[in-house]
């Protein structure tokens, strides 16, 4: 019943401090061939480091970033603040999906008000949610 998604993305990144959530996300993405490659990091700082490292090699940057909100050290929103200051090369290459358990309206509003955030998704990541993304990939242009 659930068909592979024909690998719409080359490389995606998962930023989540919860191992189980990263594991589930990785498994689901792989299972339904959502992306060729998955970069999984356990903190926002690691994510920034990775992105900075790839600033001169855009081909190595993820096209899609699944970003959790509640994380120690640097939470999702703090990450977005830092992300804003990253070189245009990086920001042009990536789009961000919030992936969180938060049901707070304030969180959703704040996230969607950010120009780099494409969607606000609730955990867990399932086939249905991935399918949604592939069906309407251009619903919101993060660059505008």
């Amino acid at each position: 019943m659930e068909q592979p998604l024909n690998v719409p993305y080359k490389r995606v990144m998962i930023v989540d401090d919860t191992y189980v959530d990263r594991y589930v996300a990785e498994r689901v993405i792989k299972k339904y061939s959502f992306a060729e490659d998955i970069i999984s990091v356990e903190s926002a700082l690691d994510a920034l480091d990775y992105l900075m490292a790839g600033k001169d090699h855009p081909e190595e940057l993820p096209e899609l970033i699944f970003l959790d909100i509640n994380m120690p050290e640097m939470n999702g929103f703090e990450f977005l603040e830092k992300y804003k200051e990253l070189p245009e090369t990086i920001k042009k290459h990536c789009i961000i999906m919030m992936l969180t358990t938060s049901l707070h309206e304030e969180d959703m509003k704040l996230a969607l008000a950010n120009p780099y955030v494409y969607r606000f998704l609730n955990k867990p990541l399932t086939f249905d949610r991935l399918k949604e993304i592939t069906l309407q990939p251009e619903k919101k242009d993060p660059q505008l």
């Binding site: 689901v28 867990p124 399932t126």
Partner: peptide
């Protein structure tokens, strides 16, 4: 939600 993710998987 983690549990749910695992169960769904």
């Amino acid at each position: 939600s983690s549990m749910m993710g695992v169960v769904e998987l």
